[in-house]
């Protein structure tokens, strides 16, 4: 892989994860070693994809960063300060849209504004801008049930961005969508990211999705979840979907598949 300097590489990382470990017991009493000695630096404005098969602890890692779960060992630093629990510097987009059916699209996306006690008029104005950015203009007063799966996930992305977080954590956000919609959403997400310039921590088990979207791909293996490789993605932005059929792209995805080894996802 050609070595291109990542933006702001010399600066202190926005998030530093060092030697993180996590074990938990399932309801059946099985002891799961979810994460072992995981270290990642996230640079401000960077798009990082974590690629791994299911059960490799990548969702656990995201939940620790989101403050939903606690880690056993190691350290998570946010701007050099120890990180404990949830905080307003992160926005999360989950595997499913998790929109509340009793709220309209607009009410759903401003929910973080209300919970965090921020200015609702400003939040509403920002929500309308972001909804337009993701192509949901005119759907503000619809209920989630009236939206397609892709549109619901777009609304969820807006909700993740509404309070202007420094980091957007995304947990396989397009995993539940059909292949065509997923491809379109990848292009969309890149466009949104180029406008917003957030640090994105993107979890996926799709090799091509990781290679298409990320500045850097981190490959994880399961039981215990550890980092097996880290690859910089050299392609210029904005990336076109035709990139995915180029030889360079093919070489990168072949390399990533190789690193995933026998745990390769069947979804590609």
């Amino acid at each position: 892989m050609r070595d291109t300097p990542a933006p702001g590489m010399a600066a202190e990382p926005l998030v530093r994860v060092s030697a993180l470990s996590k074990r938990y017991a399932t309801q059946a009493g099985e002891d799961i070693h979810a994460l072992e000695d995981v270290s990642i630096d996230l640079v401000d404005g960077e798009f990082v994809a974590v690629l791994g098969p299911s059960g490799c602890g990548k969702t656990t890692l995201l939940k620790i960063l989101a403050g939903i779960e606690l880690h056993d060992h190691g350290e998570v630093l946010f701007k050099g300060k120890p990180f404990n629990g949830a905080q307003t510097g992160t926005g999360v987009v989950f595997q499913t849209p998790v929109l509340l059916p009793w709220l309209t699209v607009l009410q759903n996306v401003v929910l973080p504004i209300r919970v965090l006690g921020l200015s609702l008029p400003q939040g509403t104005a920002r929500a309308r801008e972001l909804l337009e950015l993701v192509g949901l203009k005119g759907f503000e007063n619809k209920y989630p049930v009236e939206l397609s799966g892709g549109m619901q996930q777009r609304a969820a992305i807006v909700r993740g961005l509404i309070h202007d977080p420094r980091i957007l954590l995304m947990d396989e956000p397009f995993g539940a969508l059909d292949a065509l919609t997923r491809e379109r959403m990848n292009v969309e997400l890149q466009r949104i990211w180029l406008v917003n310039k957030k640090t994105v921590f993107f979890i996926t088990h799709s090799v091509s999705e990781a290679a298409f979207l990320a500045d850097r791909v981190i490959v994880m293996s399961p039981r215990p979840g550890t980092i097996v490789d880290e690859v910089k993605v050299p392609f210029a932005r904005p990336r076109d979907i035709d990139l995915t059929s180029s030889a360079d792209f093919g070489r990168l995805t072949t390399h990533l598949r190789h690193k995933l080894g026998s745990h390769e996802s069947a979804h590609d």
């Binding site: 939940k63 989101a66 403050g67 939903i68 629990g85 949830a86 905080q87 307003t88 992160t90 999360v92 989950f94 998790v98 929910l111 973080p112 919970v115 965090l116």
Partner: peptide
């Protein structure tokens, strides 16, 4: 979990 992530 969505609410937990917002420290609700």
């Amino acid at each position: 979990e969505m609410m937990a992530a917002l420290k609700a």
